[in-house]
Design a protein around this nucleic acid. Structure first.
Lengths: 297, 297
DNA sequence: ACGTGGAATAACCTGAGGTTATAGGGTGCC
DNA sequence: GGCACCCTATAACCTCAGGTTATTCCACGT
């Protein structure tokens, strides 16, 4: 079975007809017809029953298709990786981060780095954590920043700074607090909950669950910034990472530390088998500096 | 990146040289050389550094290779499946089983079936359980027989008979037993342990572990028949499935039931998405009959 | 200097897979 | 039935990716 046979089989199977397959493959109908029958001849069995001009997959075709389908995923991956490996330039760094870090911390890093070392080209994007992992695997990005990434074989995470979760509340809402607040004091307040699937979300979840306080949840969201936005509109209070809390500092939102601090790390995440280059190393050193400064405030 | 590019890259990477790769691929050296440079040209980066006439993979090549390697596994699978799907004939059944069942039960089934329905062609082989699963997945076999297969999405197992584990001991070894034996009575006897990784092995393991008796293990093996052979040579006692115990009935080995019976099922295992054919169905019915008879003795 | 083993280049060849044109079998509609 | 429409298959021809042989070039060990 030649590679082209497999491609054609795949196309005909998914399209359900030789004609449509030929369109998808950008070749003529007879070409597909011929290659397909050649494949069948070589295999020694039919892949499709021609019943009344229609192509009906045989049992064999159905079984084969499962494997062929997986194969095509893999081919796609290889092609994408091969593309992504094309260096954009030696002084180029492709960054990604979770949304929470993408609006403030990462831009800050880049801006600060560029003033000191001009000429570097950056690409920035925000991805969810799972997407970050596959983007790293496919070499679509060089470095990512995320909160406490879960341990995985294919990535290596280096903590560059640590911060803590804080309470954010609408300024007009009066709370009987001095410097910090206990979870139990939130019992009857309207609360905006984070349903974040990422590693940080899980950390927060277990923290809140352990608090035994039953919250009066009025809204739930997946991203820290939306939580912040809801709070700033007076909907209720919420608990978010301090970077989000500080970076969107609107006059309507007040930040209060938690009584029992809940810490997180900001990590630089790289593919585990990447050998470090000069440019990325310098950038990472700088990134660490900026992150630490930002979180010391 | 054309498919051929990927093939050539893979060959050169694994062989370490263009010349060796060309031999493996059964083409001339200049051909490989040309295709490779074409690939590099199209990609926009080098895959190998030519340092003194030698081919040294670049960083990019190393990253790409991981994915390409996986891809080749998949291609191999597809090719194999495509081959295996070639019907040997409509009246053909390809069987596999674990070694323990392969020497007695399965031959018995086949022999018995053939006297009643002559003309069917059989292929038999013995495989370990993991191999059975992949052979089914690749349609290399139609039906397999195994002890209590672990639940997996891609296979469906139908119990066709059940039996139990029994103690086997050298005949000359006198044991103070009437009809059955307790595990605790084995405490100081030399014991041949089964280190079987399959589902049955795990069952047996947990059974022996729960018995709290510390055994005097003098040998360990992976297959029931070897255990039986060891016992027949007077090395010690062992616990095996009753099929093995009975089928190799040598005059030197005595079989004694266990006090607390430990049961297992013999299952017919098929790929989960196989539509049943007439021949296999008839055979399975027959197989059930034979297995039940054999275990009723 | 010299022989050796691998990579690249040049010039040419070949067949898998492409093309257009055409024939022919089903199905549905009037 | 007969016409229109949609498929697939066959025929006859074309083309270029990938193959060939012959030769050159380089780096190295002796």
């Amino acid at each position: 079975m030649r590679m082209r046979h497999i491609e054609v089989f795949h196309a005909v199977y998914t399209c359900g007809s030789v004609t449509k397959a030929s369109e998808v493959l950008n070749v003529s109908q007879p070409s597909v017809s011929k290659v397909l029958s050649h494949a069948e001849g070589q295999l020694g069995y039919r892949l499709f029953d021609r019943s009344g001009g229609r192509m009906v997959p045989t049992l064999e075709a159905e079984k084969l298709y499962e494997h062929v389908d997986h194969l095509f995923d893999k081919i796609g991956t290889v092609r994408r990786v091969a593309q992504n490996l094309r260096k954009i330039g030696d002084d180029a760094i492709r960054l990604a981060s979770t949304p929470a870090l993408g609006v403030n911390l990462v831009p800050e890093m880049v801006a600060s780095f560029l003033t000191e070392y001009p000429g570097t080209y950056f690409e920035l994007e925000t991805l969810h954590f799972e997407e970050i992992v596959s983007a790293l695997r496919e070499s679509r990005i060089d470095i990512a920043f995320a909160f406490d990434p879960s341990k995985q074989a294919e990535i290596k995470a280096t903590p560059i700074a640590s911060g803590q979760f804080v309470l954010i509340k609408p300024r007009h809402l009066a709370l009987p607090v001095k410097k910090s607040i206990k979870l139990s004091q939130l019992k009857n307040l309207p609360f905006v909950r984070l349903n974040n699937r990422g590693p940080l979300g899980q950390l927060l979840d277990s923290y809140l669950d352990s608090a035994e306080a039953s919250f009066n949840i009025v809204a739930a969201t997946e991203t820290y910034q939306i939580a912040h936005a809801l709070v700033s509109r007076g909907i209720g209070v919420s608990i978010v990472d301090e970077i989000t809390a500080k970076s969107n500092d609107s006059p309507d939102v007040e930040v209060i530390p938690l009584n029992t601090p809940l810490n997180f790390d900001v990590c630089a995440v790289q593919s585990s088998h990447t050998k470090s280059s000069n440019t990325t190393d310098t950038f990472l050193d700088h990134a660490k500096l900026v992150a630490t400064q930002l979180l010391e405030l």
